[in-house]
């Protein structure tokens, strides 16, 4: 499992680089982020949550049963407060979303 970065969206803000617990993401000469050590990714999704332009997506490797979906999160306005919306782009092109209210605790 690892992440992929869409460099056409990346604005070079370095945030993903700064938070990665393994310091696996680097910024190239064109100020674009890239993952230098894709096999070392822990899948913690910290970089995805930090990216202001949603350029980073997360996927499951085929070796652990991945089927080609890509996942990212966006902050959207909720009724009372900002909520986190998870986007799942499936291999067939369809998109599913799940909303998480950060002010609500886990039920389990």
């Amino acid at each position: 499992m690892s992440i992929s970065i869409d460099q056409s969206k990346c604005i070079g803000c370095r945030r993903c680089h700064d938070v990665c617990p393994g310091t696996l993401i680097k910024i190239n000469e064109d100020k674009k982020a890239f993952i230098k050590y894709p096999k070392d990714c822990w899948g913690c999704t910290s970089c995805i949550k930090e990216c202001p332009v949603h350029a980073i997506q997360f996927f499951l490797g085929e070796d652990i049963g991945g089927k080609g979906s890509k996942v990212h999160t966006e902050k959207v306005k909720g009724e009372k407060n900002d909520i986190v919306r998870w986007f799942f782009e499936l291999n067939d092109g369809s998109v599913k979303t799940i909303d998480i209210d950060p002010k609500e605790s886990n039920k389990y």
Partner: peptide, 17 residues
Amino acid sequence: KAYLNMAPSQTIRWIEN
């Protein structure tokens, strides 16, 4: 939702399967 908050891979797994 609970898994998205701690181990998102599992939620992806469920959505894909």
